[in-house]
Design a protein around this nucleic acid. Structure first.
Lengths: 197, 197, 197, 197
DNA sequence: GCGTAATCGAGACGGTACGTCGGGTCTTTCT
DNA sequence: AGAAAGACCCGACGTACCGTCTCGATTACGC
C-alpha cells in the first residue's frame, strides 16, 4: 500500500509523515472507542486534524487505513523461529501468533479487517496478499521442515495443516471469542505431530 | 426472529405471508447480484414491492433478513447421523457441512453474516445463538460418543476438536476460498481419530 | 416553482408546510447576515432545522430557494394601476417599483438573483419567466394605453420604453447603488411623455 | 491590478510575461468553453501550464483575471469622439459601446463580471472603479457639452441621462439578451435630445 | 355491518457520511 | 525571488440510505 518510488526527487511538497501518523493513530484509537461500524473517514480526519482528501489520497478506504495502522502501531511481526528442534519452533510460532490475538486492540482490528474482506472483494485481495499470505508462508516453512523429517502425521498435507492452525485461531477470534491459552497450543502440537505430543 | 405469540387472535390485519416471502426472495437475489455491501433495506423494499416500514417492522436490519432468507430459501439443516459406526457418522456430518459451503449463494450468505457479526455485536449474538451454536452442539454430540468409546486422540478435548473442524471450514470460506473436497474430509477424520485414518 | 397539481391525493406523507417556511425564512435571514456568496444549502438546512435532501427535493439550488423566499417573505406584487389618468398610472407604477428597490433585503435578494441568472443559464430562464417577464408585461400594459392615446414620444417604441425604465432601475441597483427618489420618477416621466413633464 | 513598480531593479527572477499571457488566454478561452460558473483557478492553471500560486500572486481571484483578460484580449477602449456635431459625437459613442456588446465573448465576460460584482463586494469596487466609472465619465463629457449648448431636454439631468444609456445596454445584456441595433441608437438619441431626433 | 386495530405501499422527513471538487496556503526543486 | 508541481487543511457539494413519521387504503376481529 501507499508505496512510492522513493528515488526521483520530484518537485512539489512532499507527503507529510506527521499527517500520516496522526491518521493512523486516530484510526486506531477510534476503532477502540466506537467500533468499526461507527469508524468513518470523516471521524478519522477530524480526530487527526487532517483533511478527508489527505486520507483518500493515500488509502482507498477505512479498512486500508486500519490495516496500515495495525502494521504500524501494533507490531504484527511473526518470526520464523529456528531453534533446531522442530516441535520447539512450532511451539514458538503458535505462541507468538496467539499472543497477538490476546491483545484486545489487535483482535478488534483483525476481526474488522476480516469482516471488511468479506464485504469488499478488492480489499479482500489486498488483505490476503499483505497479511494472510505471509503468515501462511511462515508456518509453511516450519511445516515443510517437519515434513522432511517425517515428523508430520502421514495422512496430513502441509496445506491442510496450515488451514487447521489458522482455522482454529480465526474461528475463535470471529465466532466464539474463546481465549488462546497454552492448552490450545499443546493440543495443536499434538494434532500436528506424528504420535501425539 | 420474527416470532409472534400466535395464540391471541388480536384484531387488525394479519402479517402478509406474501410480503414476507417477497422480501426474503429479494434479499437473497440482491445479495447475489450486487453483493452484501450494496445490499440495502431500500433496495430490498423496492425489489420486493413492499415498503421499508414493513421490513423494519419484522427484522432489525438487513443481516437478520438475510439470515432468515438463508434459513428459508437454502435448506441449512445439518443432521446428526447415527449409523452405529462413529467414523461413518462423522464422515457423514462433515460431508453434509461442506456440501453447504459448496453452494455459492449459501457461501456468499454465510460470509456476509459472519462479517456482519463482527461489526454489529448484537447481531453477532443472534447469529451465534441461532446458527453457530446448534451446529457446534450437533458435532459435539457425535464427538462425545467417540470420546466415550475412546476413539478420539488422547490429548484432544472435544471442544478443541469442534473448533478444529469448524475452524478449517470457516477459514477456507473466509480467507482462502479453497474448495471443500473429500480429501479434506479424510484428513480431518485422520486428525480426529486415535491412530490416523 | 415547486407547484404540484394539488388535486390527486397520492399516497405517502405530504409535504411539510412547516419545513417549507422554515427553509424560506432561513434563506432570507442568512442572505442578510452573510451575503449570497456565503449562502449555502448546508447553512440553510442547519439554520432551518431541516435536512439537505428536503431542500434539494423541492428546489434546484439556492437561487431558486431565494426566489421563492423573496416571493413569499417580501411582497413583490406590483399592481397595474388604473386611475384614468395615464401619467398618474405610470407615476404610481414607478413609485411602487422603486419602493421595492429601496428595501435593503429585497435589493440584496434581487442583485443576487440577477447575478445567479448570469452564471446559471437554466436559472436565468426561470428568473426571467417568473420574475422579469410579468413586470415587463405590467408596464407594457400601461404604456400600450399611453401609446393609443398618443401620449408617448413619437420615436419611442413601447419595448424600448420598457427597457429604459427597468434599465435605469436595475443599473442603479447593480452598478451604482444610487437611491431611488422622486426626482428619478419625474425624470423618467419626462422621458416617457410627449412633451417632457 | 497587476501593477508593479517597474523602475526599481529588484533582485530575483522577474515576472514572466509568458505566464501572464498564458493565464489570460486560458481564462478567456475557458470562459467561452465552460462558462463562468465552471471557470476555476485550478482549471486556468492547468490549461495555461502554470501553477495556482502564480495566479494568486498577481490576481485576487478569477474575476480579476477575467477583467484583465478582457482588457488585454478584447479591445475595450471606447473613444470620446469630438466631431464638432454633438448628436454625431453621441451617435458615435453609442455605436461604439454597443459594438462591444455584440461580440459574444465580450458580452459573456461582461455579464460574468457584473455578476461577480454583486456577489463579491470588494471586486465590485474594483470593477466599478476600473471599468464602469471611466465609461460613465466619457459619456458624461459628451453630455456636459450638450448640456452647455442646451441640446439636452430640460427636465433631464446629465447623471440620469448617463444612467438611461448604460441602463438599457446592461439591462439588455443581463436580462433580455436583445440585440443592439441602430434602431436602439436612434431611439436613445431621441430621448437625449431636446425635441426628439 | 360497524367500529377499532393492525398491516400494507408509498413517500416525505431529519440526519450522517459518502467521495469529489475547488479554494487558498505551504513546501520543494529548479531557473 | 519567481515559477511549476503538488500536498495540505478546509468547507461545501449533491447523493445515498438510514430509521422514523405520516398518509390513504386494506383486512381482520369483536360487538
Amino acid at each position: 500500500m501507499t508505496e512510492q518510488r522513493a528515488e526521483s526527487p520530484r518537485p512539489g511538497r512532499r507527503r507529510s509523515e506527521e499527517s500520516r501518523l496522526a491518521i493512523l493513530t486516530a484510526a486506531f484509537q477510534l476503532l477502540g472507542e466506537v467500533g468499526y461500524a461507527a469508524l468513518t473517514i470523516e471521524g478519522i480526519a477530524t480526530r487527526s486534524g487532517t483533511g478527508k482528501q489527505t486520507i483518500y489520497r493515500w488509502w482507498p478506504g477505512k479498512a486500508d487505513v486500519l490495516l496500515d495502522a495495525l502494521a504500524t502501531k501494533a507490531d504484527l511481526y511473526v518470526p520464523v523461529p529456528d531453534t533446531g528442534s522442530h516441535p520447539a519452533d512450532l511451539r514458538a510460532f503458535l505462541r507468538a501468533s496467539m499472543a497477538l490475538g490476546r491483545r484486545p486492540e489487535v483482535a478488534a482490528g483483525l476481526r474488522a479487517l476480516m469482516a471488511e474482506a468479506q464485504v469488499d472483494p478488492a480489499f479482500g485481495e489486498r488483505f490476503r496478499a499483505s497479511f494472510l499470505q505471509p503468515r501462511r508462508e511462515a508456518l509453511g516453512t516450519l511445516l515443510d521442515r517437519a515434513r522432511l523429517r517425517g515428523e508430520l502425521p502421514p495422512g496430513l498435507s502441509v496445506g491442510t495443516a496450515i488451514d487447521l492452525v489458522f482455522g482454529v485461531v480465526w474461528y475463535r477470534l470471529l465466532a466464539t471469542g474463546q481465549e488462546f491459552d497454552d492448552r490450545l497450543v499443546e493440543e495443536l502440537l499434538g494434532v500436528l505431530t506424528r504420535d501425539g505430543a
